[in-house]
């Protein structure tokens, strides 16, 4: 099953490679991984999307907790949470297609952030599924380039991850 795991860790050189190394050495999946410093610059917040049986996910959270630089781990999929991903997508936009693509971007609440006479670059946020749907909606040959951040997640309401 897909799980979205969020963790706080010391913002130190090498901390990211400890997490990545743990996943590769123990054979766990990583679908995506995002990381950046928090409002407290000594801490990084990481969101990991992984998949595995309940036993594997239990081991993953235990092994993450065991890393010396990891302050806290939470499996966001255990409760209500929100997740968002950012995609930048560059599409060929010529002639009649220009209006059609702009309309499509509006429907998906995307924003066109770069325009040339032959292309649009669209910024889109949402769940992974929404971004997939936008890609589906585009003519495949029109897609020039996509870049996605992977999911970031946060608990709903009072569910807060703090050290």
């Amino acid at each position: 099953m897909r799980h979205i795991i969020s963790l706080l860790m010391e913002n130190e050189a090498g901390a990211l490679s400890r997490v990545a190394g743990l996943f590769s050495s123990r054979g766990y999946n990583i679908e995506s991984l995002t990381v950046a410093a928090t409002e407290d610059p000594t801490l990084s917040r990481m969101t990991l999307v992984t998949a595995g049986s309940d036993d594997v996910i239990e081991q993953i959270t235990k092994q993450l907790n065991k890393l010396i630089e990891v302050v806290k781990v939470v499996d966001l999929s255990d409760g209500n949470h929100i997740e968002r991903e950012l995609m930048l997508i560059k599409v060929r936009a010529i002639g009649n297609d220009r209006e059609e693509i702009k309309r499509m971007a509006d429907i998906f609440r995307g924003r066109i952030i770069d325009v040339t006479d032959r292309s649009y670059t669209i910024e889109l946020t949402g769940t992974g599924a929404k971004l997939d749907a936008f890609i589906e909606a585009m003519e495949p040959s029109a897609i020039l380039e996509t870049v996605r951040t992977g999911a970031s997640g946060i608990g709903r309401g009072e569910r807060i991850l703090k050290p």
């Binding site: 081991q59 235990k62 065991k66």
Partner: peptide
């Protein structure tokens, strides 16, 4: 002492 040793190979 190590939670990750528990229920690793055997429930």
């Amino acid at each position: 002492i190590d939670p990750s040793s528990i229920s690793k190979r055997v429930k």
